[in-house]
Design a protein around this nucleic acid. Structure first.
Length: 773
DNA sequence: GAGTTTGAAACT
DNA sequence: CAGTTTCAAACTC
């Protein structure tokens, strides 16, 4: 361990300039808060490097501004921003997944991976905030070429391995996160792994760190404890990971390492900044690093040949910084490799692209989007997912569609992620992809809100849609996934619209922020990429009427956050339908009832008659359904019983749907309900597994199912919770409809307060978090 | 698969 | 804001 640490330091020194970045990441400023970082950092502190860093830039607390900018609601036309948070969570997970994406050169910067995406956002922020301090921090000089090459090469492999990362999870849940964090910061650089590769880890790590700091004040301590408890040493884990990377990377030269470091550090910084989790503080320094890295990256990219992901990164960076170069985009086009990765990314890319492009690069975006599309290649066309990507030309336009998806995705991702860990063997990538896509989307969303595609309710949706295709490629599962209906939906809800042209909320696809795809049986459908403009315009229109129109219908309150971990015991009961239902005949016991469908209890917002919602009656008692837990009021008890019954019924009807297993639990995630967003249990699930969905495009569902089945409540990602956009919603909703009032008022408070926080929290759900036992 | 029921969305 | 209409999903047969 120590040796490794030293070596790290040594490297850092070597890289002093750009490398500093890495250090920064690790070091995060706020020691008081982040014990973790602090502890880990201590080693470094003594090192000259540390001093160097300090000298570089004044360490200032990172301002929320960054985040704000990125996610800033203001930027978003409507509430969506609020919702983004949940996505974020998804992002975390996605990061792991991202690796694949990274691999794809085709993807344009952001689109590529969640990690990158995030990075891009961050970059943007940084760029804006910083003046230009050190472009040259990174030393492009260092055999960038090699680094680049490696990076590209590695990525492909990394993807695979990363997918395997599940292993980590299995080993030590918490530790994995932390470990990843460290890796990203420290090891990654040393090993010379590409920044992109680590980015995901870094992000997650940062997230974890965040959690640790925020929730677990004892961050580091916990980690160590975890280590002990699980017997897993995160450091070792890291080292292992690094090893893997090393293996993978055929070319490990120091030079490469250096270059890689710069890149990595860059990403790391970004991720950190974005999330804020790590209170970096030294915004300036980090920024500098970022810039430096970016510049370095660009150079590298130039040097590099085609297919290097670095290029992509560089692009993103440029875009952010505004130094964009058309050339890069061109290069991107050339990039041939990693067909697989591309496939995976596709959708995500599109979304991301759209988002990022819109905001940051119009120019580049065109090219980028183009690339993305290509990457998707075949699939893209069919899938259609979400976002209308316009093409290159209008990347900006295309944009956002994805947002809705993102949101949805977020919710799902976590689950998916987990699932992967458990099941991973077969098609880890797929899941990863899903997650990543979701994450990316989220990230993008925050930034892109404009698009208008608001977050989707279902987690499933987003993730599902996006992912599917890829999945299919990768493994049999994929196939299944495709076949399967998508379960969730996000991907495709398989609407049957006949008169609405799929441009109204009646259309589930449209409502979910996704494009209609093959599986859909709609007529005269305008909800397709081809009609992107129309779709976006319509969305705006609808949003103007009701900003929350595309927001998740089910909101989770802060409580739900259970997540954080350990407390699985608490169950979130707080999830509620944002507007409440108006059921009169169904007794809120059928899917006609949105509350029921969402797996949440009715609330005061509901105007239902004869409410018998098993998840909680509007009358009262909130019933915290939580099965787990705890306190159950009389009512709740009653509900429970009824609930069980209901669940059973559902099962009968929809055997496939796992709902029953965890109906309440996390109905939440923002969205997730037992039934999956739409779950259409009957529809999707059943078919999902066995046969397949028409389109085959979406995969996500299956995963979910599994997730539900396999994952215990505790484990369930709480992501959804964070989703609770409600809070935001409430305030925002101009219509003043009942919308989220309910929740927001009562439960939300904490979450709402800081979107950031929410996001972070949500993210965590990683498998790792849950101790394996 | 067709028809009915239901409640959200949209409209007035 | 309330009432009505439209719409498509959910459900039933």
């Amino acid at each position: 361990m120590e040796d490794a640490a030293e070596s790290r330091v040594g490297k850092v020194k070597e890289n002093e300039k750009g490398k500093g970045v890495v250090v920064l990441v690790m070091e995060t400023p706020d020691r008081s808060k982040n014990n973790q970082t602090t502890t880990s950092t201590n080693k470094f502190e003594d090192s000259p490097v540390f001093d160097f860093l300090n000298s570089l830039s004044p360490i200032e607390p990172v301002k929320p501004m960054h985040i704000t900018q990125t996610i800033n609601p203001l930027s978003f036309a409507s509430i969506p921003s609020v919702f983004t948070s949940p996505h974020v969570s998804s992002l975390k997970r996605s990061r792991f997944l991202r690796r694949h994406q990274l691999a794809d050169p085709s993807k344009p910067e952001f689109s590529t991976d969640g990690g990158k995406t995030i990075d891009a956002n961050e970059l943007i922020l940084d760029a804006s905030s910083k003046s230009d301090k050190s472009h040259g921090n990174l030393n492009p000089e260092d055999s960038v070429d090699e680094a680049v090459c490696q990076s590209s090469y590695e990525y492909s492999k990394l993807d695979v391995e990363l997918s395997q990362s599940d292993v980590y999870d299995s080993r030590c849940p918490h530790s994995s996160l932390t470990s990843s964090y460290y890796l990203s910061a420290k090891h990654s650089t040393e090993y010379g792994c590409t920044s992109s590769t680590f980015a995901p880890f870094i992000q997650e790590a940062s997230q974890k760190a965040f959690y640790a700091t925020e929730e677990n004040k004892e961050g580091v301590d916990q980690i160590e404890q975890d280590k002990e408890a699980t017997g897993c040493d995160w450091e070792s884990f890291i080292s292992n990971a690094s090893d893997i990377l090393i293996f993978e990377s055929p070319i490990n030269t120091e030079s490469c390492k250096k270059s890689a470091e710069s890149g990595e550090s860059f990403y790391a910084n970004l991720s950190n900044n974005v999330q804020n989790k790590i209170s970096f503080s030294a915004a300036g320094s980090s920024e500098q690093v970022g810039e430096g890295s970016g510049s370095g990256i660009e150079k590298l990219s130039n040097q590099l040949g085609e297919g290097s992901e670095l290029k992509e990164i560089a692009k993103t960076h440029e875009i952010v910084t505004g130094s964009s170069t058309s050339n890069q985009s061109e290069n991107m086009d050339k990039e041939p490799d990693s067909g697989l990765h591309r496939g995976v990314r596709r959708r995500c890319l599109v979304f991301e692209m759209a988002g990022t492009l819109k905001k940051h690069l119009d120019e580049n975006s065109a090219s980028d989007s183009y690339l993305l599309m290509q990457s998707d290649g075949n699939t893209s066309s069919g899938n259609g997912q979400l976002i209308p990507t316009k093409d290159r030309s209008d990347s900006s336009k295309s944009v956002l569609a994805g947002i809705g998806l993102h949101l949805n995705a977020l919710a799902t991702t976590p689950k998916g992620y987990k699932f992967v860990a458990k099941f991973r063997s077969p098609a880890p990538q797929e899941e990863l992809i899903n997650n990543s896509s979701a994450v990316n989307l989220l990230e993008r969303e925050t930034s892109t809100v404009e698009n208008g595609f608001p977050p989707v309710e279902d987690d499933s949706q987003a993730s599902g849609c996006i992912v599917n295709e890829e999945i299919t490629h990768s493994s049999p599962k994929k196939k299944r996934s495709k076949l399967e209906p998508v379960g969730e939906g996000e991907a495709c809800k398989r609407c049957n619209c006949k008169k609405s042209k799929c441009l109204k909320l009646y259309c589930e696809c449209f409502a979910a922020g996704v494009y209609c795809v093959e599986p859909c049986s709609c007529m005269d459908c305008f909800n397709k990429p081809v009609h992107e403009d129309t779709v976006l315009a319509t969305r705006k229109q609808i949003e103007s009427r009701n900003p929350l129109a595309f927001a998740p219908k089910v909101i989770r309150s802060s409580d739900s956050l259970c997540e954080t971990q350990s407390d699985s015991s608490k169950t979130p009961a707080s999830a509620r339908h944002k507007r409440g239902c108006n059921c009169r005949k169904s007794g809120c016991l059928k899917k006609y009832c949105e509350c029921y469908q969402g797996g949440v209890g009715c609330s005061i917002n509901c105007r239902c008659d004869g409410c018998k919602n098993v998840f909680g009656r509007k009358d009262g008692k909130e019933v915290e359904l939580e099965e787990d837990g705890g306190d159950i009021t009389e009512k709740s008890m009653v509900d429970r019983n009824s609930k069980k019954t209901a669940i059973q019924n559902n099962l009968e009807q929809n055997p496939d749907s796992a709902l029953p297993a965890t109906p309440l639990q996390c109905p939440g995630s923002s969205v997730q309900h037992p039934f999956t967003s739409k779950n259409k249990p009957p529809r999707s699930f059943p078919s999902t597994r066995s046969s397949f969905g028409k389109t085959g495009t979406f995969v996500s569902q299956p995963k979910f199912d599994k997730h539900f089945e396999s994952v215990p409540e505790d484990e369930m990602p709480k992501v959804g919770q964070e989703g609770s956009p409600n809070s935001g919603i409430k305030s925002s909703s101009p219509n003043s409809k009942r919308v989220s009032s309910y929740h927001s008022g009562a439960e939300t408070s904490p979450e709402l307060r800081s979107s950031r926080k929410l996001i972070l929290q949500s993210i965590p759900s990683f498998p790792s978090l849950t101790p394996k036992d």
